[in-house]
Amino acid sequence: MLTGLIIGIIFRGFMATRWRIWAFENVRNVHELEARAIKAGLIRNQNRSWFFPEFRSSSDKAKLVELSKKFTQPDIFINDHTVANEVRVYFSKRKNYLVAGAAAGGGLAIGIAVILNNPQQYIFVTMLLIAAGLIAFTSLKKALNTTPRIIISDKGIETVNTPFYEWKDIYQEEVFTEQADRAIITYFTYASPNGYEKLAIGNDLTHSAQQIESALKLFRSRSDKAKPVTDEATLRP
């Protein structure tokens, strides 16, 4: 096991360098690429360089020095006109109705099956039905909730926990995943003059974490007048 781990780390170190050179040679928006690659675990970040070493020859180092010039240029913003001026994220009715139905129906079916097989298991069945009922109730409550969880627009951001802030007052906005005990939780976060918002993003929303992250980048780029704006039509040959 130890030998396999060492071989894997060494192999990854060489291949990560090859991927880094190949990817940055063929991509214009290197800042966005690097951020996504770090988040996906393809390349190391500064805090974990000791665990993910990258082995580079002299020619590799020379190529990376040449490619580093790309990082002196801002990424090109391509405006997506199919996205409206505002994105509203709600609890998904369909997903939560499905969870509620599955919890209620599954709990009832298992309870009946257990009782028919062993009538003495009424305590277990009672606890099972209570747990299933709580899950169903929570999901139904979410399905009937019509308050937006997140609103991202050309003007700024608002969440269910925080008031509206303009883009000029917002910084460090991102979507990231972290380990909490045995669970992996995805968060939508940003900082404002009045504090730091950290809202959990589950699988029960109308938009996925990736869609929310894309909306963040799109609306931030729209509001950032310093970035060059290029329409998709002008990039076509």
Score class of each variant (00 low, 15 high):
215 A>I: 05
134 L>Y: 13
86 E>Q: 15
20 R>V: 04
204 D>K: 02
99 V>T: 09
96 N>P: 06
32 E>Q: 08
5 L>N: 14
178 E>W: 11
188 F>S: 01
219 F>M: 06
190 Y>A: 00
30 V>G: 02
38 I>L: 09
136 A>I: 06
111 G>D: 07
129 L>E: 03
14 F>L: 07
97 Y>I: 15
226 A>G: 08
138 T>C: 02
103 A>N: 05
140 L>F: 07
17 T>A: 14
124 F>R: 04
157 I>Q: 03
31 H>N: 03
194 N>S: 15
110 I>P: 01
16 A>I: 04
38 I>R: 06
124 F>T: 13
93 K>A: 08
134 L>G: 08
135 I>G: 10
163 P>W: 08
3 T>K: 12
136 A>R: 01
178 E>N: 07
90 Y>T: 01
184 I>T: 13
40 A>T: 08
220 R>P: 14
212 I>R: 05
26 N>Q: 03
186 T>F: 06
218 L>D: 04
141 K>I: 01
160 V>I: 13
14 F>N: 05
123 I>A: 09
225 K>N: 03
135 I>W: 08
111 G>I: 05
208 S>G: 05
17 T>V: 11
173 E>Y: 08
157 I>S: 04
225 K>R: 12
181 D>G: 11
51 F>Y: 15
115 I>N: 02
61 K>S: 04
147 T>S: 10
81 H>Q: 15
122 Y>E: 04
42 L>Y: 10
115 I>K: 08
12 R>Q: 01
230 T>C: 12
189 T>Q: 07
179 Q>R: 12
44 R>K: 15
71 F>D: 03
156 G>R: 00
205 L>F: 08
28 R>L: 06
165 Y>F: 09
148 P>M: 07
215 A>H: 01
162 T>K: 06
221 S>T: 09
100 A>P: 00
31 H>F: 11
11 F>P: 05
51 F>Q: 13
202 G>H: 15
1 M>R: 14
24 F>R: 09
149 R>L: 08
146 T>E: 04
98 L>P: 09
106 G>H: 03
115 I>D: 09
60 D>R: 04
61 K>G: 08
77 F>R: 04
98 L>Y: 06
96 N>T: 01
200 A>T: 13
101 G>H: 11
193 P>D: 07
215 A>M: 01
38 I>T: 08
4 G>Y: 13
15 M>L: 11
205 L>D: 05
65 V>I: 11
158 E>Q: 15
41 G>D: 02
232 E>G: 03
141 K>V: 00
124 F>C: 09
91 F>K: 00
179 Q>S: 11
11 F>N: 12
81 H>E: 07
75 D>I: 10
129 L>V: 13
62 A>Q: 10
203 N>I: 15
